[in-house]
Amino acid sequence: MTRTLRIAVADDEPDVRDYFRVMLPRLGHLVVAIAENGRQLVEQCTSQKPDLIIADVRMPELDGDVAVQQICQSQPTPFILVSAYSKPILLDGCQTVGHAYLTKPVKRDDLEDAIALVCPDHPARENSQKNP
């Protein structure tokens, strides 16, 4: 059965934030929080309690990986970290939740696959509206 995921996204680039805002609903999900940096992400996740976090790693004020680590300490949440660097980032204490790392540039297909991997009970692929 399909499940709409409530997703929090964070990226310091307006173009990328717009992309998540437009694309994630197309994949059948709800964007519940859009943050410009790690600090905003922590605040918004505390109030919204999303099912999934998609965050850029390098952001002003607070990096995405540090923000996710903080969030997971009080409310373990599956996450996808997006980075310009191909080196994997290892987060302490976050290994019990579903997580994935993507290297930029991320395409719609990569995003779908990562969501399916991180939230396996969500058959995103079958539910999404794919372009021919």
């Binding site: 173009d15 990328v16 992309y19 694309m23 197309r26 997006v82 310009a84 930029k104 540039p105 991320v106």
Partner: peptide
Amino acid sequence: SRNALQRIQSCTEMLEL
């Protein structure tokens, strides 16, 4: 360049829509 490529990718996919 990956940051810029990500922005181009994002806009391209939005334009496609």
